[in-house]
Design a protein around this nucleic acid. Structure first.
Lengths: 217, 217
DNA sequence: TAGACAATACGTATAAATACCTACTCCCGG
DNA sequence: CCGGGAGTAGGTATTTATACGTATTGTCTA
């Protein structure tokens, strides 16, 4: 039942061999690929950003701890969903983990079925997130190919101004606005105002007031 | 420093008088209003949905537990941010709480400053959430006042069809589309296509494909 | 320095949307 | 059974947006 998409990968980081061994067996038995690492450092050197999946992470480890790795991933803007697994952790650790975005925090020993369920959930989450991010990037990319002037015009379009109003605001001719507008539609690959709006607003995910910020980012 | 907006309220639910007493003193000292309750049941009977704030919730209590109250609030669609406070809880409890949306989970005894910080954060979150929800409701309300036909037309508008295309799709005249369109703009209180798009898409928070579902909900 | 691109602007023509108006039919509820 | 709203449609005039094409100026770069 667990997702056995061939392209997804479960990362397991735990310093104990026994844990790596048994979890590898468990997870592979569902058809889900898994790679395990004995330390956070090794994981960081082998993580493949292209591959959707999730991370099973031990809290207490020599050198870099699980929570530290979580911080490091945040810093590197790596958003792989993390399921913590721990033998001797306390509430403060779990709270920190969750507040930093962990999807779950399980105590060893845990119920195998529960773990598998959480893994599936985490992977789904990652896939959904990746789709959203890539869509966002695509649009952001087009946005960044607009000239500064075009971006200004776009931000006015999104706020609902007509060509005439924009011309007045920018102190340029109606014709020029039309030219910019046509270029914008072309560069953004939008077929209609509606499409353009969707791209401009959804991608920056902010109210139109803040749009100018988003478009320049 | 803690927000002392007169209209916000901290709810405290704990069966121990000593806890209620000391926390009340602490929180009132910052100028923040607080009301405490000895049980989940009493809280439920006295909760004021109009008042933004947050909930400090003890986990272990006679009768209904903190986690049960959290579930009940979810069931009642009451989305007040919850900060759990607990003396003898374990990781499973904290995990359950977080997965159900808790903003934090603190162990007694906790650092007063930390608690106050979390309260402030939670209240801000509630205020932001309430604003979003009320905006959403306002728009949803307008959406529901559209006739079925108008909703159909709106869903086509949002997908980027021109009047002519819509007329063809719905097998009605161009004029009728224009009439519907005018009614839609009026009822939705939109001044421009851009505004209309914002309302129609942001409120349903879904891709235009699914818009027809959202608009009928 | 020549060529590319951005920003500006004009002309003309067509297409689309908006703003007014009226009017018919159907169906539902008082 | 009658009034009113919804859905339909036509007329006319105006405003906007598009779609062509051309041209000037300035900046940046190969």
């Amino acid at each position: 039942m667990t997702g056995n998409r061939p392209d997804t990968l479960v990362y397991l980081v735990d310093d104990e061999f026994a844990v790596r061994d048994s979890l590898t067996l468990l997870i592979e038995s569902t058809g889900q690929a898994i790679r395990s690492f004995a330390s956070a450092e090794v994981f960081l050197n082998n993580y493949d950003p292209e591959r959707p999946g999730c991370l099973l992470l031990d809290v207490r480890m020599p050198s870099m701890s699980g929570l530290e790795l979580q911080d490091e991933l945040l810093r590197r803007e790596i958003s792989i969903p993390i399921i913590f697994i721990s033998g001797h952790a306390g509430i403060p650790d779990s709270a920190k983990a969750f507040r930093a975005g962990a999807v779950d925090f399980l105590e060893k020993p845990f119920d195998n079925e529960k773990l598998l369920g959480r893994i599936e959930e985490a992977i789904k989450k990652d896939i959904a997130n990746r789709e959203q991010v890539s869509e966002h990037r695509k649009i952001q990319n087009r946005l960044n190919h607009l000239t500064v002037r075009e971006q200004e015009v776009l931000s006015l379009i999104v706020r609902g101004y007509s060509n005439k109003e924009m011309a007045k605001i920018l102190n340029i001719s109606n014709r020029t606005i039309e030219a910019h507008r046509a270029h914008i539609m072309e560069k953004m690959q939008a077929e209609s105002l509606a499409e353009l709006m969707m791209m401009a607003t959804h991608s920056s995910h902010n109210a139109p007031d803040n749009f100018s910020l988003a478009v320049r980012a």
